[in-house]
Amino acid sequence: MIVRLLICSLFSVSFLSIKAQENFAAYANIKIEPTDKINFNETEIAVSYEKNLGTKYKIANTLEYSNLKANYELNQFDFYHDQDKFNQIQNKFEFSHEISEKTKWQFSIIPTANFQQNLDVSDLTVLGDLTINQQLNSKLNIVIGAGRTSIFGAPKFTPIAALDYKFNDKTNLRIGFPDSQIKYANNERNEFKITNSFNGNFYHLDISDTSEKAVLSQITTALEYDRNVSKNWFLNFKAGYDFNKKYKLTDSSNHQIYDYNIGNGYVLGIGIKYKQ
């Protein structure tokens, strides 16, 4: 009980002043990802805020909870009944500094607890990244950096790079790693995006003879549509496909113990967001 209290305190310490912030947002998403062998359903809720500290500094904080369920439809013997529900509590704190009119740097720290049912201090992992943003001209911007991420499943240090190009007031292009997108807004209420992202996650297992973690990763290409339905409310619709999708069990050294060989599959999602 004490361990749970300490972990919850760690996630909420930078979130306590949320009522005093004006730039507040809350959102909820539902996503389904069926494959040939296993169907995944994920529910996510989050609250966030951001605040300018003078003219050159900004902080932002997002507290998020997600629940992933795995449905082993073709498993006749219910062998994986204890590996069908996974939880994540994550807090992302960001700090950015505008060094000059064209240059700024951003730092983030992301404590995350990924677990099945029993939350323990051993489930806590700290991720984060550091990036530099350089504006080359009115249309072109580059981002370089590195971070400790879970885009390949296990926590690893990975590079971050992107080239942003603004065609006009309606169309923007980002080419980079781990995320790329092209965005088009035909008016203030409609926005269309084609996205490509490397993404993954891991979960500590409660009871297992040899396995320590369940690891998931994929490359997702999707078409997204954002609709501003009123002053403060937004809807998001997503349809796409997961490539190179993997679901494995690993030991404490991230060595593979078992591969489910689930194959690729499509992804569908819907979300709602409140922003002020």
Results as ranks from 00 to 15, higher is better:
residue 119 L to I: 10
residue 30 I to P: 00
residue 50 E to R: 05
residue 107 F to N: 07
residue 37 K to Y: 13
residue 91 N to R: 04
residue 30 I to Q: 09
residue 67 N to P: 02
residue 115 F to N: 03
residue 55 T to M: 07
residue 122 S to W: 00
residue 61 N to G: 07
residue 62 T to P: 01
residue 55 T to R: 09
residue 31 K to R: 10
residue 117 Q to P: 05
residue 41 N to T: 06
residue 114 N to P: 04
residue 111 P to E: 08
residue 120 D to Y: 04
residue 86 F to H: 12
residue 92 K to N: 13
residue 107 F to K: 03
residue 80 Y to N: 13
residue 28 A to S: 10
residue 84 D to A: 03
residue 81 H to C: 07
residue 107 F to Y: 12
residue 109 I to K: 03
residue 40 F to P: 00
residue 98 E to W: 00
residue 37 K to D: 11
residue 91 N to A: 15
residue 39 N to S: 12
residue 39 N to P: 01
residue 85 K to R: 13
residue 97 H to R: 06
residue 88 Q to C: 09
residue 70 A to T: 07
residue 107 F to Q: 12
residue 87 N to P: 15
residue 123 D to T: 11
residue 67 N to Y: 04
residue 63 L to M: 09
residue 120 D to Q: 13
residue 58 K to H: 00
residue 76 Q to N: 14
residue 116 Q to N: 14
residue 90 Q to A: 11
residue 66 S to E: 15
residue 28 A to L: 05
residue 71 N to G: 03
residue 103 T to H: 14
residue 64 E to P: 00
residue 52 N to D: 13
residue 101 E to F: 11
residue 60 A to I: 00
residue 101 E to I: 11
residue 82 D to Q: 12
residue 36 D to L: 07
residue 119 L to Q: 08
residue 82 D to Y: 12
residue 111 P to G: 06
residue 73 E to R: 02
residue 38 I to L: 08
residue 100 S to D: 13
residue 44 E to G: 02
residue 35 T to R: 03
residue 93 F to G: 01
residue 57 Y to D: 14
residue 69 K to N: 12
residue 68 L to D: 01
residue 76 Q to L: 14
residue 80 Y to G: 01
residue 46 A to Q: 06
residue 39 N to Q: 10
residue 30 I to C: 04
residue 36 D to Y: 10
residue 45 I to A: 11
residue 54 G to F: 12
residue 101 E to L: 11
residue 31 K to S: 08
residue 36 D to M: 03
residue 44 E to F: 02
residue 108 S to Y: 04
residue 109 I to M: 14
residue 33 E to Q: 11
residue 81 H to E: 15
residue 79 F to V: 11
residue 105 W to M: 15
residue 101 E to Q: 15
residue 56 K to L: 11
residue 30 I to E: 01
residue 94 E to M: 08
residue 28 A to N: 05
residue 97 H to Y: 14
residue 93 F to M: 05
residue 64 E to H: 01
residue 79 F to K: 08
residue 48 S to F: 02
residue 101 E to C: 07
residue 88 Q to T: 10
residue 42 E to A: 01
residue 72 Y to A: 03
residue 88 Q to K: 10
residue 108 S to K: 09
residue 120 D to S: 06
residue 45 I to K: 02
residue 70 A to N: 09
residue 121 V to H: 09
residue 105 W to L: 13
residue 55 T to N: 12
residue 63 L to R: 08
residue 79 F to P: 00
residue 83 Q to K: 13
residue 82 D to P: 00
residue 37 K to P: 02
residue 105 W to A: 14
residue 81 H to N: 15
residue 30 I to H: 06
residue 79 F to R: 05
residue 71 N to I: 02
residue 103 T to C: 14
residue 68 L to H: 01
residue 111 P to H: 08
residue 55 T to Y: 07
residue 79 F to I: 10
residue 112 T to D: 15
residue 90 Q to T: 08
residue 39 N to K: 11
residue 64 E to V: 00
residue 56 K to N: 15
residue 120 D to N: 09
residue 45 I to D: 01
residue 34 P to L: 14
residue 53 L to D: 09
residue 62 T to N: 08
residue 48 S to Y: 02
residue 47 V to F: 03
residue 113 A to C: 07
residue 71 N to M: 04
